[in-house]
Design a protein around this nucleic acid. Sequence first.
DNA 1: TTGACATTTCGTCATTTGACGAATTATAAT
DNA 2: ATTATAATTCGTCAAATGACGAAATGTCAA
Lengths: 121, 121
Amino acid sequence: MEETLLITKALSDGTRLRIISALKGGELCVCQVVELLKLAPSTVSRHLHILSASGLIRSRKDTRWVYYRLADAGSPKKAARALKWVQGALEGDASIIQDSQALKKITRVSREALCRTQGKR
Amino acid sequence: MEETLLITKALSDGTRLRIISALKGGELCVCQVVELLKLAPSTVSRHLHILSASGLIRSRKDTRWVYYRLADAGSPKKAARALKWVQGALEGDASIIQDSQALKKITRVSREALCRTQGKR
DNA sequence: TTGACATTTCGTCATTTGACGAATTATAAT
DNA sequence: ATTATAATTCGTCAAATGACGAAATGTCAA
């Protein structure tokens, strides 16, 4: 029950549903998610932690950046099934579509706009 | 998004997951759910209302009793899919199994024990 | 080494949530 | 009619949750 509740609680927040949908297109670093959601980095980090603890997403640290992606083969089956369900439920959702539009711009210019260090080189 | 959030929020509570699992065996009246959960009737009523508002369960009023059942054919597709997922996620769960044992006793003697009026006749 | 930056952790605050009992509504028994 | 019962609604309280900024951590650049 605990494991399932971790998942349902993780899914019971609109911001976290947006994050899950945003990651459908592939991994993102925290600063990109921050840019999309327009929330404080600390807030976004907390949401990512909750999703991570539920097994719905995983993280990978590359030098100074941390990239998050949806649960995959190496993840618990329960998480994979939950993901499949919630993605179906959100299919065609207006705010999700809006986010995916915004994400296109972010992933295009993110390096210069968000990660100045990397952009300067 | 709103509709999906109603569902995920409804699923983000252990008591409500127990109710959903309890209804898998067929409809129950509020007093039977109260007996299973050992919570105040007003609390149970509130949980049932939240589940009802999300579309996951439906109610039927029969004279003095209100019976709740899982969403069925006449219910929104989104709810049906959510139900299917969560039931799978809870399959084999220890506390759910325990509840189903307790439910057997409740549905057997409920009339006399819980609904004295009906029992007396 | 020193400074800058991405991310996380922590403390605080406002809002939401779950539990309860009291009061209310609707229905049935006497 | 009056009383009793099943269920709901409402007000209150404690606990959980989400948002933020400040401080801490870890990594890279100069």
